[in-house]
Amino acid sequence: MRKISIIIPAHNEERNISYMVSELQKLFSDINYTYECIFVDDGSTDNTLNEIKVQHEMHHHVYFIELSRNFGKDRALQAGIEFANGDAVITIDADMQHPPRLIIEMIRLWESGYDVVYTYREKANEHVKSFQKVASKLFYKGVNMLSEIQMEDGIADFRLIDKKVVAELKQINEYDIFFRGMIKWVGFKQKGIPYTPAARFSGEASYSIYKLFKLALNSTMSFSVRPLYAATFIGLIFSLSSLLYIPYILISHFFGLIAVSGWASLIATVAFFGGLQLFVLGIIGMYLGKLFMQAKQRPNYIVRTTNLLGIPEELSA
């Protein structure tokens, strides 16, 4: 039988673990596949890891990877993908907002020849606050406008990836990895399917407006240099606009219309162009900062303990 690896990043999800394992067990009891369930504990401060270990004692196909601290969801996914050895890998959130029954449709499309089967929200998530809906919509519009990849509004980290795509992903070593964009970038034969998010089984979402804004900047700059082009274009426009002062100066000189400059207009002009210069320098600085962090070649995550593939639980990375 073909094997499916289920990767589940978990950060403070102690009350969702047992329910997720139970739902997956019911699902795979109806289909002719073996599977492994790999939870990646991303620096949880609650009882998440112990809950996973309890499930491992009860179910031989449940495994865990404990990271040394909170590295972020995408790096937790990267850790799980690095350890997975199934014919296909499925990534899914631990909060049960991604409906596990959709895995059957994913596998069917995979068996029909698709290398990547990803999901996107059919409509806005009714289980989140209004400002989160607006922020999410602006996030995808901004990324699509400024980067060279196009993502559906509400594309999720709920996807199936064939092992040959996984092999390519394992070769990519980027400091700021963004899997939703990376999956689009690698290509292969892909199919998107819509889904309707369910309510969280337990807990609350940890994404804030600040984190979403930071993610938007990192993801845009990871796949495009368009912000640099935009900064250059803005600078060129304002430089050309300054030439409009020449006719005004000549007319004022010959007709004696030159007046003493006022402090208000001078300060406003200096503040505006000073702010514009800082904005452009900030964009350049962020790209240089990404190059600096990439040049350090630090690992994207550090595994503290794991029970995968016969590796001892105490594993120093």
Rank of each mutant, 00 (worst) to 15 (best):
L217K: 11
T232D: 06
D30A: 12
F28I: 06
N70Q: 03
H61C: 09
K53M: 03
F223Q: 08
K170Q: 11
I149C: 10
K123D: 11
V303T: 11
F272R: 05
F273I: 00
L236W: 11
G154F: 03
E36L: 02
V116I: 15
L169W: 01
F158V: 01
K53Y: 02
G80Y: 00
I81N: 10
D157F: 06
N173G: 07
L77M: 14
K3H: 08
S147T: 00
A317R: 09
L281E: 14
K189W: 01
A156D: 14
K53D: 02
G80A: 01
H253D: 15
I234M: 06
D162R: 05
I302S: 12
Y287C: 03
A295D: 08
V54D: 12
M145R: 14
R15T: 04
I183T: 09
Q78S: 11
V40I: 13
Y120D: 02
D41P: 01
E57F: 07
S202Y: 15
A231F: 00
F223Y: 15
S22G: 09
L244A: 15
E66K: 10
T34A: 08
D176Y: 15
H61Q: 12
S130Q: 15
F188V: 05
N218M: 14
K191Q: 07
S68L: 12
I177R: 13
Y287Q: 04
S136L: 09
Q277C: 15
F272C: 05
F255L: 11
L160H: 04
R298L: 13
G274R: 06
K133I: 12
N307M: 03
F272P: 00
F201D: 10
V225T: 13
D95N: 08
R108N: 09
Y245N: 07
L278S: 15
F255G: 07
L315H: 15
F158S: 04
P99S: 05
A124I: 11
Q55D: 09
R226S: 12
A198W: 14
M106L: 06
S242N: 05
N47S: 10
S5D: 02
G203W: 04
G192N: 08
N70G: 03
S241Y: 12
D157V: 03
P9K: 05
A205V: 06
Y120W: 07
F28C: 03
N218P: 05
G80C: 02
L236D: 14
L236S: 14
K211N: 14
R304G: 13
P194Q: 05
I107K: 10
F131H: 13
Q190S: 08
L257G: 04
F255A: 06
S5V: 03
N125K: 09
I237R: 03
S252K: 15
S206W: 10
D157W: 04
V143R: 08
V186A: 14
G181Q: 01
A198T: 08
G154S: 04
R69L: 01
N218K: 11
R2G: 03
N173A: 12
A124F: 12
M106G: 06
D176C: 10
F64E: 01
M293P: 08
I17Q: 02
N50L: 07
F223L: 04
